[in-house]
Write a protein that binds this DNA or RNA. Structure first.
Length: 614
DNA sequence: GTAGGGTTAG
């Protein structure tokens, strides 16, 4: 209040504005030592610093001083207290501050502070209740209210509320607020309503960078990688400069598409824009190179990083695991722990799957025990499916089954699917039938499992079984999944689906494929002899034309001798294609690499790098 | 002179 305290407040405000919260707090202490008194203009900044540094205990002491000074009913002080308690997860204290406030003086900002506090502490139902109360009391709703509340609606369960919020924007006059629209775009994307999001975006008269980013990330999260690249290209045409948020989404899509040369362009862009120290971008780059099969580059980037986070380690460990370098993945996991980084559930998924791919059974079992034993991590279905895979591949089928039956949580389709896959390797029909029964309950439309069991029947010369599955599929009207394969060539991604003739080179591609098929047939006669006709006509699809075969034919057609052809497939490659690639790699003397849902298969001179399943 | 909010990687 005194003239003397003025400069303190000004300096405090400046520090808080620059996010130098520690310095702000020490200035506050300095002020007290100096004998000057804080006032209603001091506390908001002191409280904000406590909130930012998560120091609710210190904030509570400030609360005491606020009462002593007698400015607890100042709106700015009150909202400061609310947000400080919310940030420190002391929601009870926040509610007390809120309820003590006289009805007449409750402002929109107070509601907003508490609503956002509830949301960020995962108390969404309390947030919704408070929002209802706000409406009943006639307190004006503004854009910040919506921005806090919309993220509650990101799960399809709350989409109803999201839709009603969206409808009410017109009433509040907030339908043209760019931030609000951005938030709705994100909401629709997270609910999987890509079309809704797209319409909103298209109709925006003024799009901000965040609007573009919301679309890029949304497409990426929904697996629409080609849309991401298209949008990124569009941004360039519109003269919009991407920021790290944009580039992370683009890199993640490059990783999914195996579009290494587009990813390389993004890397150059990162360097040109001065984003090289961005942790998110560096992790996304490592992930992209690792998933595109360039482990050398991924490792080099990892080594150069000034600071490696858990995400960086997980990306590189997963990269080695995918390629079957289990020993390196395990070594890296050990290095990570030694460097003091505490693994989370995702890190365990990457090391467990690396172990299962490389046949490191006992090592994987030890890691699984470590989760609960050393890190208090509850294994999820994704960890169990790794373990079932691990035990199953090692032929320990009964242990795998017992593990599933001991699960405290409900097993999902992937868990039973892993058991079914293991039964295929070890030809255990009885257990396969059990696993199949469970898995089709959980994922009745996933055709892969029907194919797997039918192949088991076929391997064991059980033509009745094959017929039974065929009838079952017909009854359920299941068609062969149109799996998509991609080949990246000269910075462009070329997608192929079964029976697709839309590619400009379609005629040439099909004639190359025909030649290859004829050669393969000649070469593989002996190997094919034991496959029964009944199975052939069921799964051969459009005369054996699978998307990955089209992609390989395209790749061979457009590259020169000596170049490796890399195909990305979004599902597991089928047995037929596996055999096809083996033989083609021998006939044309080229290395073919196919990445399917979980791993890389390197085909060279008639053999494949992976030793299981086929 | 002051407060409340949205988009990101494994």
């Amino acid at each position: 209040m005194t003239a003397l305290s003025m400069p303190w407040n000004t300096r405090l405000r400046e520090l808080a504005k620059r996010c130098q919260f520690l310095q702000a707090l020490s200035l506050y202490a300095q002020m007290l030592r100096h004998g000057d008194h804080p006032n209603a203009f001091t506390f908001p900044f002191a409280l904000k610093s406590c909130a930012a540094l998560s120091l609710p205990i210190l904030g509570g002491q400030f609360h005491g001083q606020i009462i002593k000074v007698g400015c607890e009913s100042e709106p700015f002080v009150q909202t400061g207290l609310l947000s400080m308690y919310c940030r420190g997860s002391l929601l009870g204290n926040a509610r007390k501050v809120f309820d003590e406030k006289s009805q007449s003086r409750k402002l929109t900002v107070c509601y907003n502070a508490l609503i956002s506090g509830y949301v960020s502490n995962s108390k969404s139902s309390d947030a919704v209740l408070l929002f209802r109360q706000m409406n009943e009391e006639g307190v004006p709703v503004n854009s910040v209210t919506l921005l806090s509340l919309i993220p509650v609606c990101v799960s399809p369960i709350n989409l109803e509320l999201g839709l009603s919020l969206h409808c009410s924007t017109l009433k509040y006059g907030l339908d043209s607020d760019v931030s609000v629209v951005n938030c709705f775009i994100t909401m629709y994307m997270k609910c999987g309503s890509v079309n809704h999001a797209q319409n909103l975006f298209d109709e925006m008269p003024e799009k901000g960078l965040i609007s573009w980013n919301a679309m890029v990330s949304g497409y990426a999260q929904n697996g629409l990688a080609t849309n991401v690249l298209e949008l990124y290209h569009n941004m360039e045409l519109h003269g919009i400069h991407p920021d790290p948020f944009t580039l992370v989404g683009v890199l993640s899509s490059c990783a999914n598409l195996g579009a290494q040369s587009v990813g390389r362009e993004v890397e150059l862009k990162i360097q040109a824009s001065g984003f090289t120290n961005n942790q998110f971008l560096n992790n996304a780059l490592i992930n992209m190179y690792a998933r595109c099969g360039n482990l050398t580059k991924a490792q080099a980037l990892f080594d150069e990083m000034p600071e490696r986070t858990l995400v960086s380690w997980t990306a590189i460990i997963g990269g080695y695991g995918m390629h079957g370098h289990g020993e390196i993945a395990v070594q890296l996991f050990e290095d990570m722990i030694r460097s003091g980084i505490v693994p989370d559930g995702t890190a365990f998924v990457s090391v467990l799957s690396a172990c299962s791919h490389a046949g490191l059974t006992s090592q994987g079992m030890e890691y699984f025990k470590m989760m609960g034993g050393n890190y208090q991590l509850e294994p999820g279905p994704e960890h169990y499916s790794c373990m079932v895979d691990l035990l199953g591949r090692a032929g320990r089928l009964n242990e795998a089954r017992n593990l599933i039956e001991s699960m405290a949580i409900e097993p999902d389709g992937a868990v039973w699917g892993a058991l079914l896959g293991a039964c295929k390797i070890h030809q255990n029909v009885k257990l396969a039938e059990l696993a199949f029964e469970r898995v089709v309950e959980l994922e009745p439309a996933n055709i892969g499992y029907y194919v797997l069991l039918s192949n088991i029947y076929n391997d064991t010369k059980n033509s009745k079984g094959v017929l039974r599955i065929r009838i079952m599929m017909k009854e359920r009207k299941l068609k062969k999944d149109p799996g998509c394969s991609y080949v990246e060539l000269k910075g462009r991604v070329h997608p192929f689906v079964v029976g697709d003739r839309s590619h400009p080179q379609a005629e040439e591609i099909y004639s190359v494929l025909e030649e290859l098929e004829a050669l393969v047939q000649e070469f593989g006669e002996a190997k094919r002899a034991d496959r029964e006709e009944s199975n052939k006509d069921l799964f051969a699809g459009a005369a054996g034309v699978h998307s990955e075969k089209l992609a390989v034919a395209f790749g061979l057609l457009n590259t020169t001798a000596g170049t490796e052809v890399v195909v990305i497939k979004n599902l597991r490659i089928c047995e037929d294609c596996h055999l096809f690639f083996k033989i083609v790699s021998k006939i044309v003397h080229r290395q073919l690499t196919v990445r399917d849902a979980t791993r890389f298969h390197h085909f060279r001179n008639g053999s494949c790098s992976c030793k299981d399943y086929w």
